[in-house]
């Protein structure tokens, strides 16, 4: 275990709110989309944190906030002890090479007008001063590392399959030797038979480079496979987090239970009790009162509509935000 006590990344009470504007000339703020609303989570060095949630849960917004791609309105993101949110643009720059991202869609995440060499050498150009031959060496090294060939360097992204493109995107993310990678649905757009290849590659790289990984996905099976710790998000909040094995074996939050039970399974034996939730995820601009999940929760009582449950630790490292997690209805 390389993970030491000190977390690499510590997010505390993070809030990312997007104002909704109305009007052409005099913009009026009509409301707030609370995409991320008071999230606290920490990641140790070398750990893989799985961030699970449905669309609108705020999982991608959270990832983007760490990268400085949006502007949180509250809380802190402390990276190795430094609060990234307090840094100016210039002071933040060194962290751009320490934190990298892999996107979901390998078709839109690579510039179609740039060759693979241009794409991979760009981060080097920005962050390291190298000679031309050094560039070439690093790029070809990295191509080899992700399972592509040196000969691919002068080709354009459209000449590659989806899986190969995702390999290029991964190479671009790790070529500057970052500490932290945010992988936002990195295998969701890929064919089933390719997903496993890319997951294996990520696992290999994570281990050989001692990467810390935040793996964002809606796919619970994939997250279960790769993550050490899993955090489940619903409407901008983390409703449950626990070590992966524990979370899947003993989910405490009714939302997590429903989410896990909803995954279609090939195995008839595991298809026993499905919890079908009523309704849909409410709009983050107008979340329900109390516990945000209560209108869809099969176990909700009056209290859930009035008071918001705080996250509480029910077992070592196992947090859940539900009034009834202590006596989970099973």
């Amino acid at each position: 275990m390389s993970a030491d006590g000190m977390p690499l990344l510590n997010i505390a009470d993070l809030k990312v709110h997007f104002p909704i504007y109305r009007g052409l000339l005099w913009r009026k703020t009509m409301g707030l989309v609370k995409a991320v609303d008071g999230v606290s989570v920490s990641v140790r060095r070398g750990e893989v944190l799985g961030l699970v949630g449905e669309s609108g849960s705020g999982k991608s917004t959270l990832g983007r906030a760490v990268l400085g791609l949006n502007r949180p309105c509250g809380g802190s993101i402390s990276y190795g002890g430094v609060d990234l949110l307090r840094l100016g643009k210039r002071e933040f720059r060194p962290y751009r090479s320490k934190i990298q991202i892999i996107f979901q869609d390998p078709y839109s995440s690579l510039n179609p007008r740039m060759t693979v060499y241009d794409i991979l050498s760009e981060p080097l150009r920005v962050h390291e001063r190298l000679t031309r031959s050094e560039h070439r060496r690093r790029v070809s090294e990295m191509l080899d590392r992700v399972g592509l060939e040196e000969a691919h360097m002068n080709r354009y992204p459209h000449e590659f399959s989806g899986g190969q493109r995702q390999r290029i995107a991964i190479a671009r993310a790790i070529i500057v030797r970052p500490d932290l990678i945010i992988a936002d649905e990195p295998v969701s757009a890929l064919d089933v038979s390719i997903q496993a290849q890319i997951l294996n590659l990520l696992v290999d790289l994570q281990q050989s480079f001692q990467l810390t990984l935040i793996f964002i996905s809606h796919d619970l099976a994939v997250v279960r496979h790769i993550a050490d710790t899993v955090a489940v998000m619903y409407l901008g909040k983390i409703v449950e987090s626990a070590p992966a094995d524990r979370l899947y074996a003993r989910p405490l939050n009714p939302y997590t239970q429903a989410l896990i039970s909803a995954v279609p399974s090939v195995d008839p034996a595991t298809r026993a009790r499905r919890i079908i939730l009523k309704g849909q995820i409410p709009s983050p601009s107008d979340p329900p009162s109390g516990c945000h999940f209560h209108p869809r929760c099969p176990h909700a009582v009056d209290r859930c509509a009035r008071e918001e449950p705080p996250p509480a630790e029910f077992a070592p490292g196992h947090h859940s935000a539900c009034w009834f997690s202590e006596f989970p209805p099973s």
Binding site: I226, Y248, I260
Partner: peptide
């Protein structure tokens, strides 16, 4: 295909 799929639940 079945082997390459990560398992969603225990087993």
């Amino acid at each position: 295909l079945m082997d390459s799929m990560p398992a969603p639940t225990d087993g």
